[in-house]
Design a protein around this nucleic acid. Sequence first.
DNA 1: CTAGGGTTAG
Length: 841
Amino acid sequence: MASSTPPTLSTAKPYQNHHIHHPHPHRRTHNGHTSLHPPPPRNPTTTKPPNPIPTTVAAAPHHRNPNFTPLSSSKSELAADFSGRRSTRFVSKMHFGRPKAGGSVRHSVSAEEALQQLIRASGDDRLVENVLHSFQLKLCGSDDYNFLLRELGNRNEWSMAIQCFEFAVNRERRRTEQGKLASSVISVLGRLGKVELAKKVFETAVSEGYGNTVYAYSALISAYAKSGLCDDAIKLFETMKLSGLKPNLVTYNALIDACGKGGADFKRASDIFDDMLSNGFQPDRITYNSLLAVCSGGGLWETAMNLFNEMCYRGIEPDIYTYNTLLDAASSGGHMDSAFQIMAEMTAKNVMPNEVTYSTVIRGCAKSGRLDQALSLVSEMKYANIRLDRVSYNNLLAIYASLGRFDEALNVVKEMENTGFRKDVVTYNALLDGFGKQGRYDKVKELFNRMKNERVPPNLLTYSTLISVYLKGGLYQEATEMYKEFKHEGLKADVVFYSEIIDTLCKKGFVESSALLLDEMTKKGIQPNVVTYNSIINAFGQSGETSLSVDDKREIVRLGNGDKKVDNRNEDRIIKVFEQLASGHLNIGEKGSKEIICVLGVFRKMHELEIKPNVVTFSAILNACSRCSSFEEASLLLEELRLFDNQVYGVAHGLLMGHRENVWVHALSLFDEVKRMDSATASAFYNALTDMLWHFGQKRGAQMVVLEGKRRQVWENTWSDSCLDLHLMSSGAARAMVHAWLLNICSIVYEGHELPGLLSILTGWGKHSKVVGDCALKRAIEALLGSMGSPFRVATSNIGRFISPGPMVTAWMRDSNTPKLLVLEDDRAYPQTSKLQPIIL
DNA sequence: CTAGGGTTAG
């Protein structure tokens, strides 16, 4: 493979993503409606956390401010490709059957009586028919029937609702009344997740001539939304326009809602928003709330904030939904400081936090490791007399279980049961996962049995959890049993189910088997996604005895390309693989050389399948680069990857080559994009990039990257004059950072200032080690500090901390050799720049 | 027409 070889990928336009020069990439016009300037530019170098609270809420409500763009395009495409959604699956977020409150009392007393009798007749179609007949004359018009439909829906009586609808519509002559009934039942079915039935009703209604209304269309769009079927919703919307119907505000809102629930890119939602504006509709609170939900689903915290400010600017008062959605965007992105600010703000504005608010923020705290804050929020919640509901309890016990704090988890379960909530499948899954991760297989088996005894049926997630727990623990017999039971129950595997198994097999070194499963899932019509591929790419970047042999890698690429000869239609490869594992007949890939062409093959395959790589892919690739046998191989790999995405790989390649002066401006734009992402995503990016640079001796480049990350607050609270916190950093990033920090200390000393009494460097346990006590980061830092002859020593009280008295550091700094040791250089620089030029901090 | 929960990559 030579770098001069043209890419075999004809469709890939080299440098196609080269949009980083545009001074205003966001600006555009839309259908002649000249829009607006981007929101006031934020200074990317600001060190202050962004203030989510609008500074000016003054303003004329419906007055268009020409300086304010609907955020719509305030986002370039990189982040969309690269942000890495929290989940690649959305259906799990569906909460069907949320009751709909009735509006004004327009129905008659008879309707209430009819409802009672219907409920009693539930399950018996003839009885239901009789009740309907007996009330036929007493019920007046669509108001009464709509009441019935809605209430039946609230009781999950969808079948009766359909029966009731058919009864009513057959006895109604007026088209408009028939249309109202249809919209009503479509909406009811949609809320219950019966989208196919809703569609059937809609189609019948259209063909019978009473369904061609904006209400029926909106109701079905909303039904699609609730099932996450964003594409169908948009298609229906187009059909509606073609048939000459004009959408109204509710239609637009439902459509934007569909984008959020269906996990669409923000771009799609903002296009709809623009379309809505250009058709003369003013967005209302629900429009903004729905748009905010799109942001929170897509991890777009800054966009969410801009939207929030924009809606305030337009004079739309945020309500509890607005705040809770905004909090979700902040919390899920790890911006907990902002989340607390928002909570304080909403209280001050008298929008009181409720159980949704709390469970959102508590979850965010737990996710970002702020356990204390999570628990104190629970107390605060109880103190404020907000009762924990099912979600809050499950949330809380999952936090304990995931930390292995089982007594506390089980106490929460008790409290939950005392409050009147039975354990549900979510409760059990959390407990199983927690015990499983700690290797408490006895408890896992016991819990699983209890679950069945209590008639809580295990679901896909239960089995998926159990199978991977057993696989990870090497209990292959049990894993096989679970899989057989799973199939016996008639449950359907999905992409997550396969991905988890594939990942586990890769991590254990059974790469050939995971390639078999990759092939099988595709044959079953389950498309692998970016997560599936990232697991595989990660296997290339992993070190140690489980790394792949060349044959393994070839196997992956071959299977990935779909040229599998064997056709075994009815064979279940999962069982085959598990049984082989159980009998010990599978080989672990031997430690072998790194064949970079294989990584490239997998990457190409992703491209062919139109699976967008994200920042985790990038990290995985960079880790693979770091394991290349030579600098040349790594640079070749990046060179090739530039053909897919020059912005990302061009920067990585340029920095690796030492083309710093030319590349840095591009790097800064890339960092700007990364800054839009949630903190975990952003830090992973910086960690991977720095690691690779450090690995190949481009240490000054690594240091520049790390300082840029620090400036942008990628790692929270990284340093002060007395303490350097490295616990969120990879080992390359951490080492580059140690140099930078010590240089800063050095300049303090040489400026004649006194150092603090005690200086410390925190490594924690090392973020990248899932093994407690592994301390890879700590060891790397220990070696570095030792090699420089520094006075830092491991603290006796905390082995993840290095300390030194200030005066000893001062003395060390005054040693004429020390400053030289601290300055980093690149091994390669093109063009050769003057060496030993100290970094300006 | 609008808010929070459990699974996969790092």
